[in-house]
């Protein structure tokens, strides 16, 4: 979040904001589970993590009328699968997770998940994957056209075998340096978030972000009201603040990701509207959220991931 925006909030309301950051949804969950719940007012988890946190009883419910700007939430984000009716969350930023290809190294069709999982010879050994179980598994499921929480044993075995085979073509699993490995030329294909891909393209113009026809992962970060928030009133003021079109547009202009607030588009940098990374071409597959599986199914996916990285 841009520091100026927090300063603006403090200037408007007199409320000081303390912000801590986490490197992943999972480490935020681990920290809250380890006793941090009750010390934070709001958190910014990704889509699937909102449902997990709700399931863990970590979220407070926003009653009707408590958020003055709730009506500003764009209709398509007002009733998401991970928080029906937006009971505890508001939209923050959204985007997609797909992959970029160095078109100088490969001139063929890039909107295809085979680039990652069954790559042409010239790309083999030059592929960086995100070091994220959820992202890799979801993209792999789309590649095989199976459900994200599959229970069919043969299909799961097939997924396991496909990943083992695909790994031989991969150079590395790096999330933190996902952009840097593409710009430096260590990798010619790299899983990457759309905002990072746009920044990478600005530094190396042969990089092109793919929207595979089999589908790709969409994510949305959300501001949630935590249970036992020590300053619940202030938390709601902060959420209202982030639902002001002008404020959320400032976040988008800074982070280069999409927002979910009606009327914010007027305040955006004009170039964001035409960014190739946030405007899927015709023929792009569907964007899907990462799904939350039950314990028994998840155990199999954990095992497949361990097999992949052992």
């Amino acid at each position: 979040m841009p520091a100026e925006l927090l300063e603006k909030f403090t200037a408007e309301t007199g409320i000081e904001v303390t912000m801590d950051t986490y490197d992943s949804n999972e480490s935020m969950l681990a920290s809250l589970k380890a006793g941090a719940l009750g010390t934070y007012d709001v958190a910014v988890p990704g889509d699937y993590m909102v449902s997990i946190m709700a399931g863990e009883g970590m979220l407070d419910t926003i009653a009707d009328g408590e958020l003055a700007n709730k009506g500003n939430i764009a209709p398509e984000w007002a009733d998401p699968s991970f928080d029906p009716g937006r009971k505890s969350s508001i939209p923050y930023q959204w985007g997609s997770t797909s992959f970029s290809v160095n078109t100088a190294a490969y001139s063929g069709e890039i909107n295809d998940t085979s680039i990652l999982f069954d790559p042409p010879a010239e790309l083999s050994g030059k592929i960086n994957m995100l070091d994220s179980q959820g992202g890799v598994m979801a993209q792999a499921s789309l590649h095989l056209g199976m459900a994200q929480c599959e229970t069919n044993r043969d299909m799961l075995k097939g997924l396991n075998a496909m990943l083992q085979e695909a790994k031989q073509h991969w150079a590395s699993f790096n999330s933190d340096t996902a952009k840097e490995v593409m710009v430096s030329g260590d990798a010619d294909v790299g899983m990457i978030y759309d905002g990072f891909a746009a920044k990478a393209r600005a530094e190396k113009e042969t990089l092109k972000y793919a929207f595979p026809s089999q589908g790709y992962v969409v994510w949305m970060d959300n501001v949630v009201l935590l249970k036992d928030a020590p300053n619940r009133e202030n938390a709601l003021k902060f959420m209202d603040f982030l639902l002001e079109p002008e404020n959320i547009a400032a976040v988008s202009n800074y982070a280069r990701y999409g927002h979910g607030v009606t009327g914010a588009s007027e305040h955006l940098d004009p170039e964001l509207a035409t960014l190739p990374e946030s405007n899927p071409p015709a023929g792009a597959g569907q964007g899907v959220f990462i799904e939350v599986c039950d314990e028994q199914t998840q155990a199999v996916y954990d095992q497949i991931w361990t097999n992949l990285k052992k």
């Binding site: 959820g134 150079a171 590395s172 954990d302 990285k309 052992k310």
Partner: peptide, 26 residues
């Protein structure tokens, strides 16, 4: 191992880290 080795294979440190911070949560 993560930065120079590409994190393709778990080391003890990353295996343990994954149990707390990763998807496994065990």
């Amino acid at each position: 191992p993560d930065l120079l080795g590409g994190a393709k294979n778990f080391m003890i440190g990353s295996l343990i880290e994954e149990q707390f911070k990763g998807n496994a949560g065990n």
